[in-house]
Simulated assay, not measured.
Amino acid sequence: MFSGGEGAACAFATHLCDSVAKLRISTHVVTVSIGISRFNKTLSLTEIFKVADQGLYEAKRHGKNRYVLVS
């Protein structure tokens, strides 16, 4: 869980994607997909993680080494 504003979360996710993209394990390129959910007081923590998980799978569908912010 990230404690900070939406812009900071997206900047952190971008930094993670960029850092991971520079990694090489043997001849393999390493990538990361990230789902980010906005905090919503009306949702339980479980529901917030489900929303972030939806973002993760959307990021995977749209390519590698990216993040998706979901409302």
Rank of each mutant, 00 (worst) to 15 (best):
M1F: 07
F2D: 02
F2T: 04
F2N: 09
S3W: 09
S3I: 10
S3D: 13
G4A: 04
G5D: 06
G5F: 00
G5C: 05
E6C: 09
E6Y: 05
E6D: 05
G7C: 09
G7M: 14
A8I: 05
A8Y: 02
A8L: 08
A8M: 07
A8P: 00
A8F: 04
A9M: 01
A9G: 01
A11D: 08
A11M: 04
F12S: 00
F12T: 08
F12A: 10
A13C: 12
A13Y: 00
T14D: 03
T14A: 07
H15I: 04
C17E: 00
C17F: 01
D18P: 05
D18E: 13
D18V: 15
S19E: 11
S19P: 01
S19T: 15
V20K: 01
K22D: 03
K22N: 11
K22C: 09
K22M: 06
L23I: 12
L23A: 11
L23C: 14
R24D: 08
R24F: 13
I25N: 03
I25P: 02
I25R: 06
I25T: 10
I25F: 04
S26G: 13
S26N: 13
T27C: 14
T27G: 10
T27H: 15
T27R: 14
H28G: 05
H28K: 04
H28S: 10
V29A: 06
V29I: 11
V30M: 09
V30L: 06
V30N: 10
V30T: 12
V30H: 12
V30P: 06
T31G: 09
V32F: 08
S33Y: 03
S33L: 00
I34P: 00
I34R: 00
G35T: 06
G35E: 02
G35S: 11
S37R: 03
S37K: 07
S37I: 04
R38P: 13
R38I: 15
F39T: 14
F39W: 15
F39D: 15
N40F: 01
K41W: 03
T42S: 14
T42Y: 11
L43Q: 12
S44Y: 06
L45M: 06
L45T: 09
L45R: 11
L45W: 01
L45G: 10
L45P: 03
T46F: 12
T46N: 12
T46P: 04
T46R: 14
E47W: 09
E47T: 15
I48C: 14
F49L: 06
F49H: 04
K50E: 15
K50N: 10
V51M: 08
V51Q: 04
A52G: 11
D53F: 02
D53A: 07
Q54T: 11
Q54R: 13
G55E: 02
G55Y: 00
G55L: 09
G55F: 05
L56F: 01
L56V: 02
L56P: 00
Y57A: 12
Y57C: 14
Y57H: 10
E58K: 14
E58H: 13
E58D: 13
A59T: 07
A59M: 08
A59F: 01
K60T: 06
R61C: 09
R61Y: 12
H62R: 15
G63A: 01
G63E: 07
K64M: 11
R66F: 02
R66G: 03
R66E: 04
R66Q: 08
Y67I: 08
Y67C: 04
Y67N: 03
L69M: 11
L69F: 05
V70F: 09
S71F: 13
S71Y: 12
S71H: 15
